[in-house]
Design a protein around this nucleic acid. Sequence first.
DNA 1: TATTTACATGAACAAATGTTCATCTTTTTT
DNA 2: AAAAAAGATGAACATTTGTTCATGTAAATA
Lengths: 192, 192
Amino acid sequence: MKKSTKKERFLTVVLKLIHKKGFKATTMRDIAHDLNFEVANVYNYIDSKQSLLEEYLFDIQDEFHSAIDPILDSSHTAKEKLSLIISSYIRITAQRPYEQALLVNEWRNLKEPKLQEFVERRKAYENKLQGVVTAGVEQGEFRSLNVEIATQTILASLRWLYQRYLETEVKLNPVEIDRQLTTLIFEGISKN
Amino acid sequence: MKKSTKKERFLTVVLKLIHKKGFKATTMRDIAHDLNFEVANVYNYIDSKQSLLEEYLFDIQDEFHSAIDPILDSSHTAKEKLSLIISSYIRITAQRPYEQALLVNEWRNLKEPKLQEFVERRKAYENKLQGVVTAGVEQGEFRSLNVEIATQTILASLRWLYQRYLETEVKLNPVEIDRQLTTLIFEGISKN
DNA sequence: TATTTACATGAACAAATGTTCATCTTTTTT
DNA sequence: AAAAAAGATGAACATTTGTTCATGTAAATA
């Protein structure tokens, strides 16, 4: 029940380890080794390997929901809403790239019933975004495209971004990233 | 050296199994069970679990390279080349969605030195696409965007598509999919 | 200071996993 | 029909893996 700084260090170190090796390939002994203590001690920090993954994933997933909800509730146009959603997505990715990487790559390792819960919540997020796309199409702000394809494409355009924050040494300018992705999603690559 | 139909059946069944459970989670016993024979017999079809993954991944990866190379060598404009690359990508995805799923999700399970080889070849593909984007920007056909971001975004817009072929019962019209994705990538979602 | 809580260890275990081997049967090739 | 190749089996193996337990020490709280 204590807000221990040791636990925070634990979670940070292990997060990077899991990202590097993959969840399945990361053993409890790997974790202990990286933290310079013995295997058994890992269980003073977490209940099980599975619960560790659950902690990470549901926490970051919640953050995405917390970011999109107030945008949906606002009185902005669909176009403005989409723009704000993109910005919030990029901001979270910039702040927590490792967790975002887990969200994209390791959710399959959840087990039932947590897996189903996760998939449902992700679907809920997609539906929220799809609602904005649908509204935009109906109001003539967006092209009359297949909204499911459009929604998935927008999401895909955002989901790869964490890689740039992890694999590059260069400090990225979030405002510039935002501008680039917003342009691509709204206007496409063609000049005219 | 024989073109055995049994080997083909083996590869098809196992491909779907690996996609469903994930490579790491799929055990040799799982494989044997799905094929209605005993574990030891699996080794009459393959050398090892690792080599199985390698077979799938390098085979489908080769197909993507075979598709993009003649397009690059043609005398089309950058815009036309990009359009053709998108179409070829969608065609391969439609024909081999399970392998495409492996390509996206399971390549991390390769081990050195195959892992490095795979990553280099994938990087080569990305560079080929990026060359087209760069040419398009230089010739004023495309917006003057960050070409790396644009390239990754285009790829991301295509990489999610296999899901629609696997998770949907509905027969998809590849021509229509093509039109939707091409529009999104070239023109974006905005109407004006 | 006394006591509870947090952090740490070594040993052990049961289950799971990839792989090998000797052997047998079926199918294909000569 | 004989020989060779392909397909199949059961038993066994050495490792690896997640987890538990009893016990000890350091730190925080009362």
